[in-house]
């Protein structure tokens, strides 16, 4: 990674503080500057960073740090603590409908990874629950989107319902549900077209699908490399739809993935899965603590605490 990790940054601070023993509020302020920088470089949204740093500072200037003999260690602990807490304490499982089928709808910006993740989820459900999923091809806009989902269906041996591209996506989903009922599929996964959260017409289309079939899960799919816009995007989708969870894709890259924190903070919805590659078995449940460490570049955090 090109960026200095927070632990590296704070290591300097520790060096300085050790000589002095106890810390002043000015020292805490200096450390908070480093925390802020690390978060911004990891692409956490500016506004989210502000709020987060304030939370950490409030705890840090409390007796906890000022009276401590190892203040830097305390700060790292608080940061990691707060970050993990914000990220959601534990991996949240997929909701299941009381009666079959459980309906999962994939939504998100263009190219985020919805179609691929639809296939990954079908695969995951078959492997873990011996499920019999049906996928619905409701993207009538992107060239060959239907072919893409059908190919994935063939690779997994999962049926794909499609009506080509000359029908309204709401109708396609309705018809697809009829087929799922007939064939007693226990899961239905709806692949929708990528869209901008500011595209009112296409956002209404999603809201109409939601009102028609009331999905059990509406999963906002977000590219882990997303920058500052992550908050606007998440807010935009969350406002128009009852988002139930988030999938963070392309985490097999070298991005810090600060968008995860931004999205969590503005939607309050759990991140349920992460995409770890292009292959259909490269889906992982979400681990908040790992994500926290990744954002801060704190792979070596534990050893640092021991040293401190």
């Amino acid at each position: 990674m090109a960026f200095e990790s927070l632990s590296e940054r704070l290591q300097n601070a520790i060096g300085k503080l050790r000589k002095k023993g106890k810390v002043s509020e000015a020292d805490v302020r200096e450390m908070m500057r480093e925390v802020r920088l690390a978060l911004l470089e990891a692409d956490v949204n500016f506004t989210v960073v502000k709020d987060f740093v304030k939370k950490v500072r409030d705890r840090a200037v409390g007796a906890e740090v000022l009276d401590s003999l190892s203040p830097a260690q305390q700060v790292i602990k608080i940061v990691n603590d707060e970050l993990t807490k914000t990220m959601g304490e534990a991996a949240a499982p997929l909701n299941k409908a009381p009666h079959i089928p459980t309906i999962i709808m994939m939504v998100g910006l263009q190219g985020a990874g919805k179609t691929t993740t639809a296939g990954k989820l079908a695969n995951y459900l078959m492997k873990t629950q011996k499920a019999r999923p049906l996928m619905i091809a409701a993207d009538v806009y992107r060239p060959a989107a239907v072919d893409q989902l059908k190919t994935i269906g063939q690779q997994l041996d999962v049926p794909v319902f499609d009506m080509g591209t000359d029908h309204d996506p709401v109708d396609i989903v309705k018809q697809g549900m009829v087929q799922a009922d007939l064939q007693k599929n226990d899961y239905v996964i709806i692949d929708t077209a990528g869209r901008l959260q500011i595209d009112d017409k296409l956002m209404t289309e999603l809201a109409n699908i939601e009102n028609e079939v009331h999905p059990t899960e509406i999963l906002l799919t977000v590219d882990a490399m997303t920058g500052q816009a992550a908050t606007e995007v998440a807010e935009g989708f969350n406002k128009r739809l009852n988002i139930t969870g988030v999938v963070l894709t392309k985490l097999d890259g070298d991005t810090r993935g600060g968008a995860a924190l931004s999205i969590r903070e503005v939607t309050g919805k759990p991140i349920k899965f992460t995409g770890q590659g292009e292959k259909l078995d490269q889906l992982d449940v979400f681990y908040p603590d790992r994500m926290a460490n990744r954002i801060l570049g704190m792979g070596d955090m534990l050893s640092l605490i021991e040293k401190a």
Binding site: M225, T226, G227, T255, G258
Partner: peptide, 14 residues
């Protein structure tokens, strides 16, 4: 490059 990308775009370009 996707304009939505944050700091990772620099690593991509490199």
């Amino acid at each position: 490059l996707d304009a939505t990308t944050g700091q990772n775009a620099l690593s991509q370009a490199k």
